[in-house]
Simulated assay, not measured.
Amino acid sequence: MPIDAAKALAADPVSSEIAWEHKDVLLYHLGIGAGVPATDPAELRYTLESRLQVLPSFATVAGGTMGFVGSLGAPGIDIDLMSVLHGGQIIELHRPLPARGTATSTSRVAAVYDKGKAAVLVLRSEVADADGPLWTSDAQIFVRGEGGFGGERGPSNRLETPERDPDHVVERATREDQALLYRLSGDVNPLHADPEFARLAGFDRPILHGLCSYGIALKAVVDTVLDGDASRVRSYSTRFAGIVFPGETLRVRMWADEGAEGRVQVTVTAVDREDAPVLADTVVEHA
């Protein structure tokens, strides 16, 4: 069997050193659409070294690679990468991210779930520097055709969309070259740049990285609900529900949780395709 859940879960964690500088943070912020208008003081918090704060979703690219990728080669996992889909992402922040740093990232397979026609791998990365833990991230990876091995089905994180109107609705336009810029932060999958490769994968043209949409949505929440203060974010989770073509506009709807202070529920849709789902079951927890 290509996935041996017991072996994958028992494998030793893999540690690696990662490092980033101001320019890596600036490039990431530009890759998710920061800097428009270029002289807006609210945007300079993301684009100017002297005022720089780090959006927590930068954790998904810190060090120049996607932190969970190494875990796809763990013992017990032998899969065709063409059958892999990034199903969801969670980041828990232990403290605000520094604009430059060196840290140790320790990755492992935290769970393997049997969804019947697919398996779900939960790939966990725990990152710490000399001052202690920085963040923990979980990537939920769907592997088509690898279910049915008799394992646990796993939890369901589906959320009901509130029946009332959103507290905030903002729209964020993406650029035609958005994916070409975002991929410079580390995810160079040709699906996001090469039209021929995209057609082979079943798309009319290259699609935007899901984690780019993830960053765009978090920035919208920080700017709209958190007074532009990225350090207030405590955790951020989402399910990738659909694709975005570069050049489309995203509609970000936000609801303050009436039963839990410090919690915002979010949905993201593609305006150009009649509000086609992009991100669902999305929650930002904050101070």
Rank of each mutant, 00 (worst) to 15 (best):
R253A: 12
R124W: 07
V252Q: 02
A118I: 01
R108A: 14
A103S: 10
H29E: 09
D4F: 07
F203I: 04
R199P: 10
F245L: 15
G132I: 05
V278T: 15
G228L: 01
V225M: 15
I90S: 12
A6C: 07
F149W: 12
A59D: 06
F58W: 05
R144T: 03
H94G: 09
G87Q: 03
Q140G: 10
A59W: 01
S137L: 08
H286G: 04
T104C: 06
L184E: 03
I79F: 06
V222R: 05
A287K: 09
T39Y: 07
D281L: 07
P75N: 05
G88V: 03
P13E: 06
G70S: 15
L85M: 14
H286L: 04
Y113T: 03
R100Y: 13
S213K: 11
M254D: 00
A241W: 10
Q89C: 00
H286W: 13
E248M: 11
A220N: 05
Y182K: 02
L226E: 01
I207E: 01
T102Y: 00
I18T: 02
F68N: 00
S107L: 13
V170N: 09
A128D: 06
E146R: 01
V264E: 09
I32K: 01
L159G: 02
L180V: 04
A173P: 09
S137M: 10
L52G: 08
A179Y: 06
R51T: 14
P277F: 09
V266S: 01
Q178N: 09
S137R: 11
L85V: 14
V222D: 03
V25K: 06
V14K: 14
I32N: 10
A198K: 11
P2N: 03
N157S: 14
E285S: 13
K219L: 08
F58V: 07
G88E: 15
S16C: 09
L200C: 09
G228D: 05
V169F: 03
E171C: 04
A111I: 00
P133A: 11
